[in-house]
Write a protein that binds this DNA or RNA. Structure first.
Lengths: 173, 173
DNA sequence: ACCACCGGTTGTAAGTTGCAATCGGAAGTT
DNA sequence: AACTTCCGATTGCAACTTACAACCGGTGGT
């Protein structure tokens, strides 16, 4: 299991602020980083093409490539060979990224409360918000099993529940 | 009290995604928006110069101006005349911004766990994280009193506690 | 041999950011 | 009345980032 950087007491990079909020914003505060992580986390997409094609927002391939390598460098994603295809790369969430689940939940909850979201897309966010910390922990354990240990998502897990709720909403609208 | 936009079921803007996480990232996912909100929220700075001069990260004045007006347009800040000076503008948090407190808490907690933060600056984040939802609610009520009703922060409030902890840490390091 | 798919790169144009200097008006000081 | 400081910004410019479309060499299935 990777060690939190903060615990190692690394020096604050020269000329930077060292405030936790600021450093997190410096790392994730751009148009795409969190969206890519969202697709890996909730969409279950783990390959370049998958992320490129299934992105609702239409990310450009060069931006996706640059974000993926940035997130790998930052220790939020890890690269693995895919046995099914020599060129295929399997991007997996690291523990650091998995611990962003509560943040994603809040982000989604706030957005669906204050911004003009589309109903079918905000169902997952509302479900996850209502589930609270207990549900987030279950989801994080599920992600750990899938991304750190390579086991598949269970059919009765949180991801399945969220996906099902979304699909039901999307088909009836 | 302002109404959440989501509740009004505004249409999703043409060609945009409608996903709550995406819309929130579109609004707040840049280098400065959350940092400015942090300074208003935790630093108690409510004037342009104050934000410009006391910013640890050194924001440029044109960027600050552009972010302030964007946040006002988005309904996260409101502008008020300051009786003490005709040109002075008092930027106050709205209810929407106050409800970002849990998000800020998670942001700070994640950053202080995974990024090389400076100890004295992460004390507040850790205190707020440990306080949990109960402390966040107290802090939000305090912010509502200060920003929506114009009453001063109480001397024994959450903000005072956080500031004291920071100042103690800063002086002994 | 053919062709779809793999993770990317390249070129280019448009937009955003960072930095320093500066603005006109308001208030305090002498 | 003159001078200085403070007020929320704006301007010009250079550097960087983003968006879009075309394209790359290698892989694998038919």
């Amino acid at each position: 299991m990777p060690q939190p950087v903060g615990v190692r007491r690394l020096p604050v990079p020269e000329g930077k602020s060292g405030c936790p909020i600021n450093l997190t914003v410096e790392l994730l505060g751009d148009r795409w980083s969190l969206v890519v992580l969202r697709d890996v986390m909730f969409g279950g997409h783990r390959h370049f093409r998958e992320l490129l094609t299934n992105s609702v927002e239409g990310i450009a391939s060069n931006i996706l490539a640059s974000r993926l390598s940035k997130l790998v460098d930052a220790g939020l994603l890890s690269r693995h060979d895919d046995p099914s295809h020599q060129q295929k790369i399997d991007y997996r969430l690291t523990e650091a990224a998995i611990e962003l689940v509560p943040l994603m939940a809040h982000l989604g909850a706030w957005g669906s409360r204050w911004l003009p979201t589309s109903p079918e897309l905000s169902i997952r966010a509302q479900l996850l918000a209502r589930g609270g910390p207990e549900m987030w922990e279950r989801f994080m354990d599920e992600l750990r099993a899938a991304h750190l240990e390579g086991r598949p998502h269970p059919a009765d897990g949180v991801l399945a529940e969220l996906t099902l709720a979304y699909e039901r909403a999307a088909s009836t609208s």
